[in-house]
Nucleic acid binder design. Structure first.
Length: 598
RNA sequence: AGGGGAUUGGUGUAACGGUAGCACGACUGACUCUGGAUCAGUUAGUCUAGGUUCGAAUCCUAGAUCCCCUGCCA
């Protein structure tokens, strides 16, 4: 698994061997980039692209660039720039670190791009077109009939004059465009004289009101890669049809240029190689920006960092670790096959990491009172509980035990089915790390629900040890001392959608919303030390988010809304009302056997 | 319709003319003070039809299915 390379890594190896980008054998010439448009929050799909690009740079000793592709002032906002930087950094793709190539904005290249555009006009490879958007669309032609434009043979100096006027803001939006003069009959519509510049009278978050024309993606992107010296420009499959255009623009600029800069047009510019791969599409989730935005605006979720949301911010607040995201993207590979990845794989990756790292604690989600009849009133015993059975170096902690306990309501059944091993009248179970107890009676409310369980304990089982008479129990329950337990709210999250492919049935993804994706349990109780400052057995989570395994329940984290990097905001004292988010449940074969959820 | 891509167990991914392998899931069993974890085992695959070859997932031909393309979005 580790020694097989995906097709992009193989292309890079071949390029290094042949010396395409530098001295043959020099892997450090590899330069990749992640080029988000700052018009939304990053989501899991982006982690694949970020990991791919950063990972390639790192393994080759090359460099990774974070570049904002901010060529459209109508949609982009500063807020998104900040959130994207935060998320990319949190993921561990450090554009300033040892493998960092820096942080850039496409808008910083507007002047250079414009100069190149004038050059293409002078070369007769671009012209100003007066067709409106509707007219262009009408004249687009069909696969077998060519498009038309009455202006493509306009003399260069006339186009140049009009281009200057466009640049200087002398024309209304939509009236003129600069178009590349390529091939109106191409079966690839991207080559039917694509628009390079459109007029937009809008201030830009970075360049202000300096520009009245803005470059289109196809014209801008290859230039951005070129200027930054990107070697391998990775993008998703839908850009495959754009690659001829990507190459055409660079070649058009290089037409008449020379390697040493002699001659009329100067030195040749760098020509990156575009390579396409399949994007990540997980089951049970929606990633389209407009759909995510709609859910935020319509309050289907509580914001971009809602823990049920597939945004990086949501995953982080959910308690997902960057490491598990890396493991996940390693697991799914890189190909050109557009598959739908089972989200269960992500959940597995999370469990795997957290199982090794997360300290164990006890929480009782739906408390049921238990009284130990033969345990002295007012007495408290401190029991030693293992912090992490996966990592003995994390030692133990002390948890109070008393006559009045709390157990999980689910762990008691008055009339148990055949394979139910937990507490029921007359049965005996182990309380984890404490004592064995036997149920000798119960009290119920008028509806028949148990309100209090009466038990006895066996003093010979202290620490949960087996008694000398060789008795066995089949279940171990988690428990809390009622007078010592701290109140907490525990939020149980489930998949936001109940269909593998939301919207597949009806055409509207909202029809497949899972109405039970959030269950907030306000009456939960947790062991007292969770209300205190982090204890020494807790790992130093780099993002400052405290994560735990609540034994027998799952992995949980302390809720941190509006997360900021720890160095930016000093850790606050534990949230006044303790709130825990369930990251993922433990695998539960009992729940499956019983045909119920947890 | 024209153009551009893709297709290997249930799922994801290797194999680059020479034993179809790995992971996840599912199922067995062992172990267990978390019905977790761990360990052992089982399960199941080359889109179809021809062809080339001693030998084809891989090369050739034809077909099937799916995705992308007719924004002054990226």
């Amino acid at each position: 698994m580790a020694d097989s390379k995906h097709f992009i890594a193989e292309i890079i190896d071949a390029d290094i061997a042949s010396g395409k980008w530098g001295p043959p054998g020099d892997a450090s010439v590899v330069r990749t980039r992640f080029p988000p448009e700052p018009n939304g929050y990053l989501h899991v799909g982006h982690t694949k692209a970020i990991h791919l690009n950063f990972g390639l740079a790192r393994t080759h000793g090359g460099q990774f660039i974070l570049r904002f592709d901010d060529t459209n002032p109508e949609k982009e906002e500063r807020e998104y720039v900040d959130s994207i930087k935060r998320d990319v950094q949190w993921l561990g793709a450090d554009w300033d670190g040892p493998h960092g190539g820096g942080l850039y904005f496409a808008s910083d290249y507007f002047q250079q791009m414009y100069d190149h555009a004038e050059e293409l006009v002078r070369k007769g490879l671009a012209y100003v077109c007066e067709l409106s958007a509707e007219e262009v669309s009408k004249r687009r032609g069909t696969p077998s009939t060519p498009a038309t434009s009455p202006h493509r043979d306009r003399p260069a100096d006339e186009s140049l004059r009009l281009l200057h006027e466009m640049r200087d803001g002398k024309h209304a939006e939509g009236t003129l465009t600069l178009r590349a003069r390529i091939d109106l009959a191409s079966p690839n519509f991207n080559l039917r004289d694509p628009v390079m510049y459109r007029i937009v009278h809008q201030p830009h978050h970075n360049t202000g009101d300096r520009w009245h024309i803005y470059p289109m993606y196809d014209w801008a992107h290859g230039l951005e890669d070129s200027i930054e010296g990107v070697t391998h420009s990775l993008c998703t499959l839908e850009f495959e049809n754009h690659r001829p255009l990507y190459d055409w623009f660079i070649n058009a600029i290089n037409q008449g240029r020379t390697a040493d800069g002699s001659g009329e047009w100067g030195r040749r510019i760098h020509h990156s190689q575009q390579i396409e791969f399949a994007k990540l599409i997980p089951t049970y989730t929606v990633l389209a920006k407009r759909n995510l935005r709609k859910m935020v605006e319509d309050r289907v979720v509580h914001g971009w960092d809602d823990p049920r949301f597939p945004t990086i911010a949501g995953l982080r607040r959910r308690g997902v670790t960057p490491e598990s995201l890396w493991a996940f993207t390693d697991d799914i590979g890189v190909t050109k096959f557009e598959s739908r990845i089972d989200v269960g794989r992500l959940e597995n990756a999370i469990r795997e990491h957290l199982n090794k790292q997360a300290p164990r604690r006890i929480a009782v989600l739906r408390p049921l009172r238990v009284v130990i009849e033969n345990f002295p009133e007012g007495q408290v015993e401190w029991m030693d509980l293992v912090n992490n059975p996966e990592d003995p170096s994390r030692a133990t902690r002390r948890v109070p035990f008393s006559r009045e306990l709390l157990i999980e309501a689910d762990d008691f059944m008055e009339e148990p089915p055949k394979k139910f091993f937990r507490l029921s009248p007359g049965s005996e179970v182990r309380l984890r790390g404490a004592y064995w107890i036997r149920c000798i009676g119960l009290e119920k409310d008028p509806s028949g629900a148990p309100t209090l369980i009466r038990c006895t304990y066996d003093p010979q089982t202290r620490g949960g040890e087996s008694p000398p008479d060789g008795r066995k129990v089949k279940a171990t329950l988690h428990w809390l001392s009622a007078p010592h337990a701290a109140p907490a709210e525990v939020r149980l999250f489930d998949r936001l959608f109940s269909a593998e492919e939301p919207g597949e049935r009806t055409g509207n993804y909202l029809d497949d919303l899972n109405t039970e994706s959030l269950v907030a349990l306000r009456g939960a109780r947790v062991e007292p030390m969770l209300a205190e400052a982090p204890s020494p057995d807790e790992p130093a989570w780099p993002d400052g988010i405290r994560r735990f395994q609540f034994e027998r329940l799952g992995y949980f984290c302390v809720d941190v809304p509006n997360w900021r990097a720890p160095e930016q905001v000093p850790t606050t004292s534990p949230a006044s009302p303790l709130v825990f988010n369930r990251t993922v449940s433990l695998k539960d074969s009992w729940a499956k056997a019983a045909g119920k959820g947890a």
